[in-house]
């Protein structure tokens, strides 16, 4: 049997097996090959997975949905008890990084003129409780300003950077967040605003309640509903209003870092802010990659870079104390 295990033969054997035309003895051969090493097993499994995901399967959701409701209706009509078998499938969530580090607030609270300024340095986060009872989580490198006469009936703040607001409800006196690009007006809600100067986009995402948004220097007003994200291109002034993944948008406030399919340059920017480091890269090949991942912020930048190195074609070199160079090394 071993003599037959040349690559070509195995390749066509797998193609035959996937096509469902293997003879029993060929299946046996494939089984032995798969068992031979973890590499073989993984190769087979990944090829099979590609095979399974690249096929035409007419979308029958609509028809099936009708069948579903018809069945449910019949069930209630005849009061039949349908025995539904389902497994208690609670997804195991891999807790990566188990301890949430408590950050010592490092905000500098200073008073100049009649403005109160909270600024959070790179690499840390902070919380601010405002006089009206509104709670603000501030992300790394953010600044929150408000006039010293901020009170229950004068609720205006301005923000650069990123913050998550849990606004104390008051329909008489709206809470206003001013940013360089837009103003957000609310009565009582939970929402995130992200408006870093170095980002090309500014955005706001609503978790609960309702917000009104007005773009700076225009008459356009938007009403944003829960689960939606408004995003504005700072240069072109183009905007989009789409449903968003709230969990990953606001995970940062709990010291978690969740990202789904974010482009490499964006990942680098975020890591730089979170860890207060400089990450240099020059290879254009990196630009086209997208990343998905999740971790707690108490990992060191070294651990994050090690993880990058293990899972993608990137190596790194330490340049100075807080400066790294990322090197692209494509898989061959």
């Amino acid at each position: 049997m071993t003599g037959m295990k040349e690559k070509d033969y195995i390749e066509s054997l797998i193609a035959r097996y996937l096509n469902g035309i293997c003879l029993p003895e060929e299946q046996q051969e494939l089984k032995l090959w798969i068992e031979e090493s973890p590499e073989n097993r993984n190769e087979y499994l990944s090829i099979k997975d590609i095979w399974d995901s690249s096929r035409s399967q007419a979308d029958r959701a609509e028809g099936q949905l009708v069948i579903f409701y018809k069945n449910q209706l019949e069930k209630t009509k005849k009061a039949r008890i349908l025995w539904v078998r389902y497994s208690s499938a609670v997804a195991a969530i891999f807790a990566i990084g188990l301890v949430i580090s408590l950050l010592i607030p490092q905000e500098k609270s200073s008073r100049h003129q009649n403005m109160q300024v909270f600024s959070v340095p790179l690499g840390s986060r902070s919380k601010v409780l405002l006089a009206d009872g509104t709670l603000v989580n501030l992300n790394s490198g953010s600044e929150l300003k408000y006039s010293s006469d901020f009170s229950d009936n004068n609720r205006v703040v301005s923000l650069s950077g990123e913050a998550f607001f849990q606004v104390k409800s008051d329909s008489l006196y709206p809470f206003v967040v001013k940013t360089a690009n837009f103003d957000v007006k609310v009565s009582g809600t939970k929402f995130n605003v992200c408006t870093y100067d170095e980002n090309s986009y500014s955005s706001t995402t609503l978790a609960e309640g309702k917000i009104e948004l007005k773009i700076e220097g225009s008459n356009q007003n938007f009403v944003i509903k829960p689960g939606e994200k408004f995003e504005l291109d700072r240069k072109t002034r183009k905007y989009s209003l789409e449903s968003a993944d709230i969990e990953s948008e606001i995970a940062w406030k709990d010291g978690e870092f969740i990202f789904r399919n974010i482009p490499f340059p964006e990942l680098v920017k975020r890591l730089e802010r979170w860890y207060d480091v400089k990450l240099n890269y020059s290879d254009k090949g990196l630009q086209s990659y997208a990343y998905t991942g999740r971790f707690k912020n108490q990992e060191t930048i070294w651990q994050v870079l090690d993880a990058l190195r293990l899972t993608s074609p990137i190596d790194y070199r330490k340049m100075t104390f807080r400066e790294f160079t990322l090197i692209y090394k494509p898989l061959n």
Binding site: S46, I50, T292, G293, F295, E299, V304, L308, S312
Partner: peptide
């Protein structure tokens, strides 16, 4: 063809797993 597809897809997105 399947093997090329596999590369194309796995090169496009990475799952960063941090086994701390």
């Amino acid at each position: 063809a399947l093997s090329t597809l596999k590369e194309k897809i796995s090169q496009k997105s990475f799952f960063i797993l941090l086994y701390l």
